[in-house]
Amino acid sequence: MKLLTHNMLTSNIIKGVTKGYPLKIECQQIEIVETEFNKEFLEKMIPKIDYGVLCRAADQIGHLGDLPKVLPETSDYNEEFMKELHRVLLKVEIKEGNLVCPETGRKFPVSNGIPNMLLNEEEV
């Protein structure tokens, strides 16, 4: 699971949970995967992500690196920033661990890189 996917997941599917965002990450295994860099894609993605959540998640798992904690002005999207954003969004892959609902503590296992968000009937 990439941090980009994490950025899009909520646990408000659980009965009684209102926001369920962001999910906490408990990480057991991380892999760095090579993915092709594309500036245009990243530029289009920036307005769609919650940048603060991305930085906190990366920090939590020790992979923030040189990514600035505050989103720079559009005119300051230099190459160094784009490369760091690319790395954090698309190259850091959580292979094993858990996503934890911030309101109930319910754990969603991540196994083989796939988060399992399936709920039992009584939880819905």
């Binding site: 990439k2 996917t5 599917i13 796939i114 988060p115 968000m117 399936l118 709920l119």
Partner: peptide
């Protein structure tokens, strides 16, 4: 197809 999530 990499970015997978199991869900209902």
């Amino acid at each position: 197809a990499r970015n997978l999530v199991d869900l209902n």
